[in-house]
Write a protein that binds this DNA or RNA. Structure first.
Lengths: 202, 202
DNA sequence: CGTCGCATGTACCACCTGGTACATGTACCG
DNA sequence: CGGTACATGTACCAGGTGGTACATGCGACG
């Protein structure tokens, strides 16, 4: 079902897209750069959209691998988990893949065909995992879910910052500020997350 | 220097791109949809890249307008400023423009020609403004800069979340958690965020 | 040997792309 | 009236696009 040459092609395609982006993607250009013909890409993936679907799947798989690796490490506290996660993600060797992730994210938000699967669980899967982790620290699920959402946003937001500015020191400091705040104990919302929120009065 | 018809074309183009994204952008398709010919787009903007530059400029102008409007409101505290900003940005009527922003952000990270200007100050301009605001509350500049960076990341990260999941209640709760933490006082990092000036070193 | 299936290459197609050349309309100005 | 500058439309170009048709190389199996 998944032949060897197909896998080789796919991983080479992902590698290439991480470096060149998916914007000006053309079967011919991609094929030439990874040493094959556009005929082969059509043959193995059916169409350009099919190729993109597989690329997205592959990228998500890598993300999940990172996630599981990190969560195997016995982290001392939620704050340390955030620090460790950031330390891992901020490494410049991962930047190309992260650029690709944000590019695909943006295109998926705009409804580009083949990118929709990226949006499935792009948030939820992380929340579920973090709620799981929070259980070990005795944090109730609803609170953990909100905190995980916030932590994910911090990481992604600062990653966007880092990729645009390259300011490692500045983003590191921001992460540290957040981690420290978390360590001091984020205030537990007295009302349920989905409760009758008295919206922010402007 | 900016003719009337050109402005009409530009605003209609931005409106269209906000709804359809900039991914599958083609002069002909765009022209047909906004009721002109691709010839006119070339005539007024010189090239496709020129058009994209103007679109980016236009979008940034709108963002700045929002920013200045919000900062005219006398906000009671940093926490309330964050709540107000979020309350404004989370409105679904702004989603198309925000999707366009993140799409362009992603493409700019990948080096799409004409999108580079978007990255200039996409972080810094907000930091500068927030440092300004922080002065009113007596927060030292370096600390304010780090906190602003964190707040910006929270807003952008949660906006990415909201656009993907549509979970207004969940993201609202996360914002509230952050705002409440801020109100309780974010810990001040013991080490300075950076040296005298460790600007973005890309 | 033949034949069968996978992988690959060549040639081709209709279509669309950004961009140009050139003619035309239209309004104002002298 | 002519002239001029802006605006717009028509026709066209060379080149690239995704996708297809078809032949071929190449192993394995009988």
């Amino acid at each position: 079902m998944c032949s060897e040459s197909r896998n080789r092609l796919l991983s080479r395609a992902v590698e290439h897209l991480a470096g060149h982006g998916v914007g000006g993607l053309s079967l011919r250009g991609l094929a030439a750069d990874i040493g094959t013909s556009h005929r082969m890409l059509i043959y193995h993936f059916g169409s350009m959209e099919g190729l993109l679907v597989e690329v997205v799947r592959h990228v998500e798989e890598r993300q999940r691998a990172v996630l599981t690796t990190l969560t195997r490490d016995p982290v001392a506290s939620p704050a340390d988990a955030i620090r460790a996660m950031w330390h891992h993600l901020a490494d410049p060797t991962l930047w190309p893949l992260e650029r690709l992730f944000f590019e695909l994210y943006g295109q998926a938000l705009q409804g580009r065909p083949g990118t929709a699967p990226l949006l499935d669980g792009v948030v939820e899967s992380w929340l579920d995992l973090n709620v799981d982790l929070a259980g070990r620290w005795g944090v109730p699920a609803e609170v953990a879910r909100t905190h995980a959402r916030l932590g994910l946003a911090v990481i992604r937001g600062l990653l966007l910052d880092l990729l645009a500015t390259g300011d490692r020191a500045g983003t590191d400091a921001a992460v540290e500020a957040f981690a420290a705040a978390y360590q001091d104990g984020l205030p537990v919302p007295t009302r349920a997350p989905a409760g009758p929120d008295s919206g922010p009065d402007d």
